[in-house]
Design a protein around this nucleic acid. Structure first.
Lengths: 341, 341
DNA sequence: ATGAAAGCGCTAACAC
DNA sequence: GTGTTAGCGCTTTCAT
């Protein structure tokens, strides 16, 4: 049960290998339409499909794009992933996955493996890799050495440093919107559940939170900040602490942690939004499932996915290193989880 | 910025290409330990990593496994995916994704592309492809022609037909457990939100539902069956219909649709579980986030993922066609969404 | 213990 | 318009 090769098509059609190759190729060439059609017919009858490893060996790249991902259990992550995959598919590209928990850091080895597979580009979809310090430097060097087009999420400096294109969200603005919403509702002690403070995307949100506070002439109080890790669990853990600080509202830096809040609210006899107002961040589809739908910040997940894919295709097709930085502005989605104090 | 090849290592070490290849290979061979170490040192200094497309062209397969997936937005699907990826990574394998909405059916073309990429095996993680009728026959033929190891979810006949190994869940038993739980709580008119009735995994659940009914001497009433599609939306749509049939409890064939139920319950003035008992299926982690945590059927998602990966590795490494069928028995997870009538 | 050489399936430069 | 041929980077058989 051997795979049919170009040789078989050549033999079956009576033409030479090179003519077959040319005839099957997309780009116009010398072969007459008649010959081309004849050959294509035979190729398809034989169920011929070019060995991509041979093609890749020649052309130096395959129709695959590597993607470095965070945990797909986070629905926002999953949604961006799906969009990228769908968009890329339109151009005949497939994704090779490389998931990383932030714990077991992506090693240079694994990245090199991807490159060795002949991928045509790398998508950096897990923003936490930028905050790995020395380790990120190593990864960056590997990436640079690969000379492959890069599209990264949430890191505009990728573009400034001429490493790759960037598709990001104005997290500062998003956090500002969320906080202001709470402020306008009369809350003055607003707790925050942040992500890891080492992460840039966390700091941006914190900046937005502070700016909103300033606008309302309220002093920033570090006591109201609980450092989470963007996982459900840390949202649950934050609740007793912040309650102890007498907050009347909480801004959770993502929806996931807000879910943790909801989950543990019961056990503390807290009802949202009666006793506590909550605003999340991501606008994940589960937000609407909650008995009290979660007010959140919509960050255009779909558009982000499409932009990442399209930008990658552009970089590949134009063989361009003319990197771009695309920024999406988030919007407040008012639902039921925050109310007037 | 050219990639370093085996030639470079040969030149740098003073040995021939073949000796380098041998020295770098895992399997023991003629090269002395001294030479081997010398060469390995140089290779690593040069950051050499073998071009996988060249390796693949020679050896006929690469360290990649193709996976055909349903929508990752479903947290159960995402969770299985992550587990497979993590487990496969331990053996140096990566996943090439091939997501399919059931709408745009996976075409033979795309499958052939995967095969052409030199994947070492195919994971069929979207059970709906078995129910494509003629189209599944075509896919099956392509799979058979590829002669690659297959591991599929939820289709024991894969194993009987000598197509591949199967990792599945006893859906009949799971549905029986769910229904019995409701029956024991005194409910007699129990609505069902099913998946597409054409799918085998749906039929199994229906069988379990019926068996439980028989055990309690209650007649099966087709009027209580609402055909959904395993998506949130269809759960929402089911509610008004089933309410119209005067049900006091609903068994949703997956958690996703149960979420849809929760989402629309508000607008009908229904409180769960006071007015309506609900049992889901999948035991997704979001279940616990709901104000009324969802009673559900745990189907061992983690174990399924690990089994799929391990079985794939076994098939690849042993070059075996000695297929297995692994079946997991589900368990009832009692939470708050179902109560005594 | 080591090197030379063939060849995996393909593309493209080069002849005709 | 078509065929011949030289590699792409690697593994492996066959000499030595």
């Amino acid at each position: 049960m051997e795979r049919v090769t170009i040789k078989d098509v050549a033999k079956a059609s009576g033409y030479s290998i090179s003519t077959v190759s040319l005839a099957l190729s997309e780009k116009a060439s010398r072969v007459s339409d008649e010959t081309r059609n004849k050959i294509r017919k035979i190729a398809s009858d034989l169920h011929y499909s070019p060995n991509q490893m041979a093609v890749g060996l020649k052309t130096k790249h395959s129709k695959m794009v590597g993607i470095i991902m965070a945990d797909m259990q986070n629905p926002h992550v999953a949604s961006v992933f799906m969009t990228i995959d769908n968009e890329l598919r339109k151009y005949g590209y497939s994704l090779i996955c490389c998931t990383t928990n932030d714990k077991d850091v992506l090693d240079v080895q694994r990245l090199q493996n991807l490159v060795a597979c002949g991928i045509s580009g790398i998508i950096l979809a897990n923003p936490s890799i930028y905050d790995l310090g020395e380790n990120w430097e190593k990864l960056k060097n590997t990436i640079l050495a690969s000379n492959l087009p890069i599209v990264g999420r949430d890191n505009a400096s990728l573009c400034e440093e001429k490493i790759g294109s960037s598709v990001s969200v104005d997290y500062e603005e998003g956090a500002y919107l969320a906080t202001r919403h709470l402020l306008e509702a009369g809350h003055t002690r607003i707790g925050c559940i942040t992500g890891p403070l080492t992460m840039q995307v966390t700091q941006y949100r914190l900046d937005g939170y502070k700016r909103a506070l300033r606008d309302f002439s309220i002093d920033y109080d570090p006591v109201l900040i609980y450092e989470g890790d963007y996982e459900i669990e840390s949202g649950s853990n934050a609740l007793p602490y912040l309650l102890g600080q007498n907050v009347s509202a909480i801004f959770s830096f993502n929806d996931n942690m807000a879910f943790g809040l909801f989950r543990s609210a019961r056990s503390f006899g807290i009802t949202i939004p009666r006793d506590l107002s909550v605003v999340g961040f991501d606008d994940v589809s589960f937000d609407e499932v909650l008995e009290v739908p979660l007010t959140s910040i919509h960050i255009h997940a779909r558009e982000i996915g499409i932009s990442i894919a399209d930008e990658m295709i552009r970089l590949i097709n134009e063989d361009s290193r003319d990197f771009q930085s695309i920024v999406y502005t988030p919007h407040l989605m008012v639902r039921g989880s925050a109310r007037r104090k």
